[in-house]
Design a binder for these strands. Sequence first.
DNA 1: TGCTATTCTATTGTACACAATTATTTTGTG
DNA 2: CACAAAATAATTGTGTACAATAGAATAGCA
Lengths: 145, 145
Amino acid sequence: MDLANDELLKLDNEVGFALYACSKGLIRKYNPVLERLGLTYTSYLAMLALWEQDGISVSELGKKLYLDSGTLTPLLKKMEKQGLLQRRRDREDERIVLIALTPKGRDLQAKTERTVSALNNTLRLLRESSLFSDLKRLLGELYEI
Amino acid sequence: MDLANDELLKLDNEVGFALYACSKGLIRKYNPVLERLGLTYTSYLAMLALWEQDGISVSELGKKLYLDSGTLTPLLKKMEKQGLLQRRRDREDERIVLIALTPKGRDLQAKTERTVSALNNTLRLLRESSLFSDLKRLLGELYEI
DNA sequence: TGCTATTCTATTGTACACAATTATTTTGTG
DNA sequence: CACAAAATAATTGTGTACAATAGAATAGCA
């Protein structure tokens, strides 16, 4: 697909728009389901990261999720209020805030697994297609441009 | 890729996360460039849609962009203030608000074409790969699930 | 040891998104 | 025609995103 000048600015030719609309569409599917768990899509992603690796710092979590402190600080405070995790300064280095799941936060994993399995089934085909690996490759490339 | 239960909730296996992170990453690349045009990513998309088809209603624009009035109304008011477009009620049907580009809005197209061409080149490979058509297909499927 | 640069989190300000609700207008039907 | 239903924007409330800045703590170095 090599575009002439007058085709360059068409909405349907925008890779970014396809990504943007797909991403929002999927989040719209997830959010009502996650609501039953008391989670939003963003807090769901944060929990996924923490279930994999508990006790990490805000900046480490930010690297995993590609989010900065401007997003994470209020999000984590809200999740702390919900009783899912605790935040505390590292004693060795007072600049760092470490995140630790509470028992309630850990226990949520099993219920979440059951709850999202329906969505996961819907997305199974996507995960099995080459689209998924292409996306992950794209994500890597985006951060090198 | 058929996932065992303990793999199901891993962040790296989330199709949604790959989409979400890719989309935000790309918008982060676009926004500083678009700023030179006085546009944000969202208003850029709105202008793309309007350059293709001027004089449409808010709801028609919403269908093109997959956005609702809660997002579009304040966005369009801001763009009207910038002098890019005008909003006026349809005389035939007072429920409808029609959007019309101003000369300034139309003139922005040429400059935008030049400005985003660098970004477009970076993304040329993506547009030429199967990823792009896969994404558009996914977008269609998402709205049927 | 001081001093400077760096690291890390928090804050501020701007800009979306979207569900739910409201208000207005039009349409369709008995 | 009257009135219920539908269509259309606007509003409200909540939840992100992120650039830019600030502020505290640490590291590195003359």
